[in-house]
Design a protein around this nucleic acid. Sequence first.
DNA 1: TATTGTTATACTCTATAACTATA
DNA 2: TATAGTTATAGAGTATAACAATA
Lengths: 145, 145
Amino acid sequence: MVDRSRRDLAAMIVPLGRALTLAELPILQAHDLTMWGYMVLLRLDAEPIRTQAALAEAVGADKTRIIGVLDDLEARGFIRRQPDPNDRRARLLSLTEGGRLARDAAQAAIQHREDEAVLARLTPADRRGFLNALKTLSQEAGESQ
Amino acid sequence: MVDRSRRDLAAMIVPLGRALTLAELPILQAHDLTMWGYMVLLRLDAEPIRTQAALAEAVGADKTRIIGVLDDLEARGFIRRQPDPNDRRARLLSLTEGGRLARDAAQAAIQHREDEAVLARLTPADRRGFLNALKTLSQEAGESQ
DNA sequence: TATTGTTATACTCTATAACTATA
DNA sequence: TATAGTTATAGAGTATAACAATA
């Protein structure tokens, strides 16, 4: 008989992630962004990136998967996609001012909702531990894929 | 300019969940279980359940999705699937002793790995807060779907 | 010959519709 | 007629393969 002091981490975290994602969708929709588009804006905001394949990997997508996403973001002026002068096969990807504004607006709404509906339900100590743990654990979780 | 004191919760949690899931797969494979099969065993361990549709919903699957899973688990003697005498349309689902042993063995291995590779990297305070928060937040995350 | 981006194709997973049996 | 389970079919999302441009 196993001492069931806790459930499996994945069994708690995966449904929680799904619920958070589901809650983001209407907010993103209100800001006229898809989840993939938003993820790309988040990633490019950190720093420009040199190839689409690298960007795709950074957001956990296939390189063929994000082409339509980039087409759309570029057409709306949210990102720049310029051939690298030093290697014209590659596309230099960066965020425009408009892209940054769109990202900020969406992210502010998302984090506001997270504060109100999620973090507010934790004690200050648990909230602090939760955020610290996520910061620590999510770092290499993203890298390992 | 947004104060980027933290990333979006979903942006941290979803990749973490994916990494945890990925790490479970080889362990489950070593115990000759699929992820869906394991999820069913976990759910049935809590208590028997009266219809397949209810079980499917409890594990976040479509009712057509788990039929093959149940076929396999039943054939290997891990679950019982008996027509309800009071309503022979429904199937009473419960865990056998063999199913419980299989679940325990897999779960012990999974949680051992989680302790070593995940929780051990947190400070005691963060670990406590993390687990408390997950317990609180995952409760209704599962219900809301 | 190798790499970047793109397009076309195939595949996996999931949900929908249609069917059988029980009520 | 309505519901539980099953099977067959269709759809969404993703990855694989093939291609054009550049190195």
